[in-house]
Amino acid sequence: MHHHALYRSMLRIRRIEEALADRYAEQEMRCPMHLCIGQEAIAVGVCAALSASDVMFSNHRAHGHYLAKGGSLNAMVAELYGRSTGCCGGRGGSMHLIDLDVGFMGATPIVAGTVPLAVGAAWAASLKKEKRVSVIFLGDGCFEEGVVHESMNFAALHKLPIVFVCENNEFSVYTHLSERQAKRPIYRIAEAHGLMTQVGNGNDVDEVLTLAKTAVQNAKHGKGPQFMEFSTYRWREHCGPDFDDHLGYRTTQEIEIGLKDCPIAKYEQRLKQSNSLSQADIDKYEVEIREEVIKSFEFALSSPKPTAMDAMERVYA
C-alpha cells in the first residue's frame, strides 16, 4: 500500500476517535467505548497486507480494526448513537461492530471470545479450499484465557490459514502485565503451540506491514497459523473518552515515553524527511477527514431511532 494511504488511514482513525471523545460528554452515545488512540499503526499495517476476501474478528477495542478493514463509518457512528442504521441496528454499540461487506465478521467484548471464532473461519476456508486468511486481533490479556491456548492448538493441529495479531499494550484495564503473567515473552507461547512467530514495533506502520505481509503469505501458502506480537501503548483510559493518568496506575515518565512514540507523528516525520509527504498533503487529508466525520455524525443523528418493539425481534434466525 502506498505510504500516503497508510498515513491517511492512521490519521483518519485518530481523528474519528478524537471526534467521538469530544462528543461523548454530550451523553448521546450511551454505551461503553474503548478508544485505540496510540495503537492505530497495528490495525492499519495489518489490514494493508490483506485482500478484500480475507476475514477478520476483533474485540472490545475494535474501532481501528473495523475502520482499517474498510468498515462503514456511518454505520459505526450510528451504532454508537443507538440508531436503526447502525451496523447492529443499535443492538451492539461500540463493542459489537460488524461489516460483512468488507469481511469484518464481528467484534465482541468477552476477552478472547472471538479468538476461536476466527480459527473456525479459517477452518471453514480450509475445508472449502478457499484461498483466504482469517485474522484475529487479541490483546496481551488474552494469554491468560484458556480458550486462546485451545484455539492455537487446533489451528496448529490442522495447519489453518489464520493470523493472530497480538497488540501488547501491557495493560488489562489498570493492571500491568507483570501482575498478571509470569515473566516470559508472549510470542513464545505461540511458538510452543507450533505457530510461526514474529515480533515487532507496533507503533511503526511500515514494520507492521512488512511483518504482516510475510504472515499473510505464509498463511495463504499452507504454512499454518501465524503469530505476530506488536508492542504498543494505549494513550487514554481503558474505557471512556478521557485520559486517566491522574489515577496514578502508570508513571508520568512512562506516559511521556508512550505519547512520544506516536505512530502517526513518527510516520509523518519519516515521510517528510524523505520528501514523500508534504504539509499540503496533510492539510488536504485533514480537511477530507473532517468533512467525512461531520457527515457521519449528521447521518447518525438524523437516522431513525429503534423502538422497544424492535428489541423483541431477531432472537432466532
Binding site: G89, R91, H96, I98, L100, M105, G106, Y316
Partner: peptide
C-alpha cells in the same frame, strides 16, 4: 444473530 441485528 440478535446482537448483530440478524446479519449472521
Amino acid at each position: 444473530h440478535y446482537m448483530f441485528d440478524g446479519k449472521a
